[in-house]
Simulated scan of single mutants.
Amino acid sequence: MSIELRHPMSSLVIGTISAAFFFWLAAVSFMTGTHPVATFGTALCFGVLGLMALPMVADYFFARHQVSEDSIDFGRRFGGRGVMRWSDVRRIRFSPTMKWFVLEDVSRRKARIATSLIGLPDFARIALAQAAPDALDPKTRRLLSEASLGRRPRVWL
């Protein structure tokens, strides 16, 4: 049995609309400004904000994972894939700032599983069953247990 983890369509919509909005503001600012330095600076700031929304779009397309009882086939934000066998996972921890679970294998490769992914409860159940008991710290074990019941880690606090 294999389970797909993927971002919801809302991630693509929010990322695309945010990027388009800030790029549009950058263009309007650049075209309508009267003071050259202020116009360039404002347009640059809006352009940077638009670029900051693009990783959300990239995640939607590339950060898709296949989880089975034997392994996890994971995708990375900017392309590239990897496979990690559960028997090779040496550590699973939760990153509170990024809101994802980080799996690390014996060769120090990392897979990042966002808490917003569709299929997270199934991932949590498999991770709890297949990962070595000493790979999980108490906090991560508690968060995975809650996620397996459908209660995702809190995003805003």
Rank of each mutant, 00 (worst) to 15 (best):
R6Q: 12
R6C: 07
R6K: 14
S10Q: 14
S11W: 12
S11F: 07
V13D: 09
V13N: 10
V13W: 13
T16R: 01
A20V: 12
F22S: 11
F22A: 11
F23W: 14
W24Q: 09
A26F: 00
A27I: 08
V28H: 10
S29F: 03
S29A: 13
F30Y: 15
T32S: 15
T34G: 15
T34P: 00
P36R: 02
V37N: 11
A38T: 10
A38R: 14
T39N: 05
T39D: 01
F40Q: 11
F40G: 09
F40S: 12
G41Q: 11
G41E: 08
G41S: 14
T42P: 00
F46W: 11
G47T: 05
L51D: 09
L51G: 15
A53I: 03
L54Q: 08
P55T: 02
M56A: 14
F62G: 03
F62P: 02
F62C: 13
A63N: 08
R64A: 06
H65Q: 09
Q66E: 14
Q66G: 10
E69P: 02
S71I: 02
S71F: 15
I72L: 09
D73L: 10
G75D: 04
G75S: 05
R77F: 00
R77H: 03
R77A: 11
R77S: 07
F78K: 06
G80M: 00
R81H: 08
M84Y: 00
R85L: 13
W86T: 01
W86F: 07
W86P: 03
S87M: 11
S87L: 12
D88V: 10
V89A: 08
V89H: 01
R91E: 13
R93G: 10
F94S: 08
F94Q: 09
S95C: 11
S95K: 05
S95Y: 01
S95T: 05
S95I: 01
S95L: 03
M98A: 15
F101E: 05
F101K: 08
F101I: 04
D105Y: 09
S107M: 07
R108E: 03
R109P: 00
R109Q: 12
A111G: 08
R112Y: 08
R112D: 02
A114Q: 11
T115E: 05
T115F: 00
S116Q: 13
S116A: 12
I118K: 14
I118G: 11
I118M: 12
I126P: 00
I126G: 06
A127Q: 08
A127E: 09
A129W: 08
A129T: 09
A129H: 10
A129Q: 14
Q130K: 15
Q130M: 14
Q130A: 15
A132E: 13
P133R: 13
P133V: 02
P133W: 04
A135Q: 06
A135W: 05
L136S: 07
D137Y: 06
D137E: 08
D137L: 06
D137Q: 07
R141G: 01
R142F: 07
L143V: 00
L143H: 03
L144W: 04
S145D: 08
S145T: 14
S145V: 00
E146L: 13
A147I: 04
S148R: 04
